[in-house]
């Protein structure tokens, strides 16, 4: 049972990593917004915005995956 508890705790700790991804995504969108508001011509970089968002978010998803693996697989 201790192993089960450790898995749960580990899964909880692993999800902390998503906070980092949240910070990163927030920085990306915030900087996009401030850049686009200062210079509306730069608002055409939407595709690059989504690309950066996707790459950043993937790292958060990795930690979520670790949590899921700990809960259901290991």
């Amino acid at each position: 049972m201790e192993v089960e508890a450790a898995k749960m705790i580990g899964a909880g700790i692993a999800t902390i990593g998503m906070g980092g991804a949240g910070i990163g995504v927030g920085i990306i969108f915030g900087n996009y917004l401030s850049g686009a508001l200062r210079n509306p011509a730069a608002a055409g970089q939407f595709t690059n915005l989504i690309f950066g968002f996707a790459v950043t978010e993937a790292l958060g998803i990795f930690s979520l995956l670790i949590a899921l693996l700990l809960l259901f697989v290991v």
């Binding site: 996707a54 790459v55 978010e57 993937a58 998803i61 990795f62 979520l64 995956l65």
Partner: peptide, 10 residues
Amino acid sequence: LSLSLRLFGN
């Protein structure tokens, strides 16, 4: 890895 896990995880 990231391509599949991103969609799956989300």
